[in-house]
Amino acid sequence: MPKITLSAASGGELGRLTRQEAASYLGVSASTMADWHRKGVGPASIKVGGRRFYRVEALNAVIINK
C-alpha cells in the first residue's frame, strides 16, 4: 500500500499515512495515537522501516464507529 498525502486521504484516496498525518486526519494528537497503540486500542497500524503507518481504511473505520 503506497504512502499518500493527508490531502489525498481527505479526498478519498486509499493508502497509508504517517502517525502525525493519521492524527491530523482523526483530529487527535500524535501522542494520543502512540498511547492508543501502546494500549492496543484505536486503528490498526503497520511498521515499515522503523516507522508506524496507518491505512486510511482503518482510520475511516474509527471515524464511523465514533
Rank of each mutant, 00 (worst) to 15 (best):
E21Y: 03
E21R: 03
S7Q: 15
A61Q: 15
A30T: 04
I46S: 15
S31W: 09
R51S: 09
A23Q: 09
S31M: 08
T18R: 03
K39E: 10
E21V: 02
G15E: 04
I4S: 00
V48C: 03
R51A: 10
S29Q: 04
W36S: 03
G40A: 08
P2F: 10
A44K: 11
H37R: 15
H37D: 11
L26F: 06
T5E: 09
S29C: 04
S24G: 12
A61D: 15
I63S: 12
N60H: 11
S7C: 12
R51F: 11
A58V: 04
V62K: 13
R52M: 09
Y54E: 02
K47Y: 10
V62Y: 06
R55M: 13
V41W: 03
S45K: 01
E57K: 09
S31G: 08
T32I: 06
N60A: 08
A61V: 08
G49H: 06
A44D: 12
A30V: 02
Y25H: 12
R55Y: 08
A23F: 06
Y54Q: 00
T32W: 08
V48E: 12
L17P: 03
E13I: 12
S45W: 01
R19Y: 05
A61I: 07
I46R: 14
G49P: 01
K3R: 15
T32A: 13
L14F: 12
V56C: 00
R52Y: 09
P43T: 02
A22D: 07
E21F: 02
A58R: 04
S45F: 03
S31T: 07
A30F: 02
R55D: 11
E21P: 03
I4M: 02
G27I: 07
S45L: 01
D35A: 07
S10Y: 11
L17H: 06
R16E: 09
L14D: 15
R19G: 11
A58K: 04
D35L: 11
F53K: 01
V28E: 06
G50N: 13
D35K: 11
F53A: 00
A8R: 08
A58P: 00
R19S: 10
Q20S: 12
G27D: 08
N60R: 12
A34S: 07
A22C: 06
R51G: 02
R19T: 11
A61C: 09
A34D: 04
S29T: 14
A34N: 04
R16D: 07
K39W: 01
S45Q: 01
A9R: 01
I63N: 13
G15S: 05
L26W: 04
Y25A: 10
L6D: 07
Y54K: 00
L6N: 10
V41N: 08
E57R: 14
G42K: 00
R38D: 14
A8L: 09
R19E: 12
L14H: 10
K3T: 08
L17W: 05
A34T: 10
G12N: 12
L6T: 05
D35V: 07
T18V: 03
V56N: 01
G11P: 07
M33K: 01
G49A: 07
